[in-house]
Every structure is written in structure tokens, then in C-alpha cells.
């Protein structure tokens, strides 16, 4: 499927700030059978000189600074992507570091008692793939999708307690459950094309890859209780949200910040 994505981030301040440094992880990946056909990043009102590098998870990172005092910065990203009809699990095996990283708890996906209790009933002995799928469905059934119940800092154990959340929370909970069963799992940041989301309701999406020996990566979406299909656009992967935020930045100054994000996805 060929999709067009427009992702506009606007940062405004009630007083001038300066020396702003920004990292952006928004370029659709060339991975899992997906291809990025075009990608453009523009900053307003001043056109910043944008640099690029690949981080150690293999994600494309764009980086720019803006030293002069300013009160508004907008980052307009447009991309065109050819999605994979079926997610390609890749062959091969994990590097020692991936094996370590994707099996160990993180701040967003801790390995506490509540998580293990939640995962316990869904374990299928000697069947990691079955276990992962069952866990994904369990997350889908136990957590109610609700915007505003959680925020960007919510962790998986909070989600169990609240019983509500958004895709980021569903993903963290599934990751935490898989890891406590020894199944390597990673966080996927991206987009989901769904015509019923438009205007204010369109946003970025997050789901989960699990690694099954002999199969490679399997991509599960606990928010919608399905596997990744041609409507999914992969952008970045990491241990959890903290590794892949769409934008990350620091600045100098004493000002109140307002963040606005608008996402539009169209099928071509």
C-alpha cells in the first residue's frame, strides 16, 4: 500500500528561548519489507541545517539546532511510503546486545510482580509464539482504549492498575509481559492508516515486535489485537518509548512550552 504522511510538530513558548537542539525520529524505515519513497523535513520560521545519523537500533535520526532566541518552532515532515503487504520477519538471529536489551526490563516496561501475575495465566509451555499471541490478546481484552487516562510517562505497571490507556501503554504492557517470560520484545513506533481516524484523532501509533527463534520477528499490535499488515508504517524500534520518541529536545531559557502535533495519513 502506498501512503502519504504529513506530520507537523509545533512548539511555542511564552518567552524567548535559545540554543534549542532537536532530534527527530520520523523517517519511515526501510525494513520488514517496507520502503520509504520520499522524505522531507522542513523547519519554520527559520530553515535549520538538518544533519542525519543512524542510531544503534538502526533508526534514522535527524538532528538540528537553533541557537538564536525564538518563541516558536515548527517541524513539518512529509513522507511517502510503500508498506509491506506482510511483515517480513527477517532471517538471522539477535546480536548479543539485542538479546540482552530486548529481554531486560526497562523503566516503561518493568518486571514487577503485577506484570508477572497478569501474564501468568496466558503462558503456553514451550510455545513462545503462542504465548506472545495469547498475551497480546490478553492485553487487548484487559485494557480499555481511552485517551487522556494516561500520559507520555505512564509505565506498564501503571497501566495494569488503571485498566485503561492508549497504544503506547498497550505496547509497553505487552513488552513487559513477553520479557518476563524470556521472549525478546521491542517497541515499534510508527503510523497506522485507518480512514476512521482523521483530523484531531489521527496520531502516531505504537506496537510490538517479538523475536521467536526459528521464525524471526513477529509483529503484534495489542491495541487492535492483530498482526502488522499493509496499513502499518514502521518508523523506529527500541527497548521502549524512551529510545524512539518522534521528537526529543533541550533548550535554554525560562519559558512555558506548548506542544502541538498534527498527523495526516492518506492512501495514494
Amino acid at each position: 500500500m502506498r501512503l502519504f504522511i504529513e506530520h507537523l510538530t509545533t512548539l511555542s513558548y511564552d518567552a524567548p528561548i535559545n540554543e534549542a537542539h532537536t532530534e527527530v525520529r520520523l523517517k519511515p524505515a526501510d525494513a520488514g519489507g517496507q520502503r520509504c519513497l520520499s522524505f522531507k523535513l522542513l523547519t519554520e520560521p527559520v530553515k535549520a541545517h538538518v544533519l542525519a545519523y543512524i542510531d544503534h537500533f538502526g533508526n534514522d535520526v535527524r538532528y538540528f539546532d537553533w541557537l538564536q532566541p525564538h518563541q516558536r518552532l515548527s517541524i513539518a515532515v512529509t513522507s511517502e511510503v510503500l508498506t509491506a503487504p506482510l511483515f517480513d520477519p527477517g532471517a538471522g538471529e539477535l546480536t548479543p546486545l539485542e538479546e540482552y536489551d530486548y529481554c531486560h526490563p526497562t523503566a516503561y516496561a518493568p518486571a514487577d510482580e503485577a506484570i508477572c501475575r497478569f501474564a501468568g495465566p496466558h503462558i503456553l509451555p514451550d510455545d513462545p509464539l503462542g504465548t506472545a499471541r495469547t498475551l497480546s490478546e490478553a492485553v487487548f481484552r484487559s485494557i480499555k482504549y481511552e485517551r487522556g487516562a494516561t500520559d507520555v510517562k505512564t509505565t506498564a505497571d501503571d497501566v495494569i492498575r488503571l485498566g485503561r490507556g492508549v497504544c503506547q501503554d498497550f505496547a509497553h504492557l505487552l513488552i513487559a509481559c513477553c520479557r518476563c517470560q524470556g521472549i525478546p520484545a521491542r517497541y515499534v513506533s510508527g503510523y497506522l492508516y485507518d480512514p476512521k481516524f482523521f483530523g484531531d484523532t489521527a496520531a502516531t501509533h505504537a506496537w510490538v515486535d517479538v523475536f521467536i527463534a526459528g521464525h524471526g520477528w513477529i509483529s503484534l499490535d495489542p491495541t487492535h489485537n492483530c498482526e502488522q499488515n499493509e496499513r502499518y508504517v514502521r518508523v523506529a524500534v527500541g527497548r521502549d518509548y524512551a529510545d524512539v520518541p518522534p521528537t526529543r529536545g533541550v533548550f535554554k531559557g525560562n519559558a512555558k512550552e506548548t506542544l502541538e502535533v498534527r498527523v495526516v495519513i492518506r492512501a495514494l
Binding site: 532537536t22 503506547q168 502516531t204 529536545g249 506542544l259
Partner: peptide
């Protein structure tokens, strides 16, 4: 001349679709 302020981290958007 500028007063050196701590560098606050920018806000980040929740992934929520």
C-alpha cells in the same frame, strides 16, 4: 550576557492512536 538556565527537556507526544 545571557543567564545560563538549566536545559529543560522538551515535551514529548504520547503515541496514542
Amino acid at each position: 550576557a545571557q543567564i545560563i538556565q538549566p536545559s529543560p527537556r522538551r515535551q514529548q507526544a504520547q503515541q496514542q492512536q
